[in-house]
Amino acid sequence: MYRRILLPIDLGHVASNDKVISIAVEMARHWQGEIHAVTVVPPISSMVAPYLPQSVEMDTVHDVEARLTDLLKASIPDDIKVSLRVVEGAVYHEILHEAKKWQADVIVIASHKPELGDYLLGSNAAKVVRHAPMSVFVVRL
């Protein structure tokens, strides 16, 4: 049923990753599926970019990709097929774009307990749930 599992990972919230990864692994095992992990890097502000070396953006993506690779190697057993991608942009938009592009059956996403700002602006997980054309499994932390 859920053979293509998109797993958005926020490397800034290390504590949440173990729980959401373990659930994605169990889903992949249950349905003989595969996991596609994605991390979104915010774009560098156009106000700051002229003052930074041109390689900063590429170096950042490579660093994030290495951190994501290490996390997945440590957290996902070898019997589960896994791929990864680091993209740049707005978090919820890029998650939805990657899910459609990869033709995911389900998105497994972590979500913290709502705070005041989330009620006013909405969390990334809430936006993904609201706009995703496929099932979304929200892991409450």
Score class of each variant (00 low, 15 high):
Ile44Ala: 08
Thr39Ala: 14
Val40Ala: 05
Pro50Cys: 03
Ser55Gln: 13
Gln32Arg: 15
Ser55Met: 11
Thr60Cys: 02
Met58Asp: 13
Gln32Phe: 09
Val41Gly: 01
Pro43Leu: 06
Leu52Gln: 06
Ala49Lys: 15
Val40His: 09
Ser45Ala: 04
Val48Asp: 06
His62Leu: 13
Ile44Ser: 01
Glu57Ile: 02
Pro53Asp: 14
Ile44Pro: 06
Thr60Gly: 04
Pro42Thr: 02
Val56Phe: 14
Glu34Ile: 09
Val48Pro: 07
Ser45Trp: 09
Gln32Val: 03
Ala49Ile: 09
Val38Asp: 09
Met58Phe: 08
Glu34Thr: 06
Pro42Cys: 07
Glu57Leu: 01
Ile35Asp: 06
Met47Pro: 00
His36Leu: 09
Ser46Trp: 12
Tyr51Val: 03
Thr39Gly: 12
Asp59Val: 02
Glu34Gly: 08
Gln54Lys: 12
His62Cys: 01
Ser46His: 15
Gln32Met: 10
Pro42Glu: 12
Ala37Lys: 09
Val38Trp: 04
Ile44Met: 12
Ser45Leu: 04
Gln32Ala: 10
Met47Thr: 11
Ala37Arg: 05
Ile35Lys: 01
Leu52Lys: 11
Thr60Met: 14
Ile35Arg: 05
Ile35Phe: 03
Met58Lys: 14
Thr60Gln: 09
Pro50Thr: 04
Pro43Trp: 07
Pro42Phe: 00
Val38Tyr: 00
Leu52Trp: 03
Val48His: 02
Val41Trp: 00
Val61Lys: 08
Ala37Gly: 07
Gln54Asp: 14
Gln54Val: 10
Asp59Arg: 14
Val56Arg: 01
Leu52Ser: 06
Gln54Arg: 12
Pro42Lys: 07
Ile44Val: 12
His36Pro: 04
Ser45Met: 05
Gly33Leu: 04
Pro50Leu: 13
Met58Tyr: 06
Val41Asp: 03
Val56Gly: 01
Val41Phe: 09
Ser45Gly: 11
Thr39Glu: 15
Glu57Val: 05
Met47Cys: 00
Ser46Asp: 15
Ser55Thr: 14
Met58His: 15
Leu52Ala: 05
Glu34Asp: 14
Met47Val: 14
Glu34Arg: 14
Glu34Met: 12
Met47Asp: 14
Gly33His: 03
Ser55Asp: 13
Tyr51His: 13
Ser46Tyr: 06
Ser46Lys: 10
Ser55Leu: 08
Ala37Ser: 11
Val38Gly: 08
Ser45Lys: 01
His36Asp: 03
Thr39His: 15
His62Pro: 00
His62Val: 10
Val61Asn: 00
Ile44Arg: 05
Leu52Arg: 04
Val38Ala: 01
Ile35Cys: 02
Gln32His: 11
Ser45Thr: 07
Ile35Leu: 06
Met47Gln: 10
Val61Ser: 00
Gln54Ala: 08
Val38Gln: 05
Ile44Phe: 10
Val40Arg: 07
Tyr51Leu: 08
Pro50Glu: 07
Ile35Ala: 04
Ala49Leu: 15
Val41Leu: 09
Val61Phe: 00
Glu57Met: 02
Met58Cys: 07
Tyr51Pro: 00
Pro43Val: 02
Thr60Lys: 10
Ser45Gln: 03
Ser55Arg: 05
Val40Lys: 09
Gln32Cys: 09
Val48Gln: 07
Pro53Leu: 12
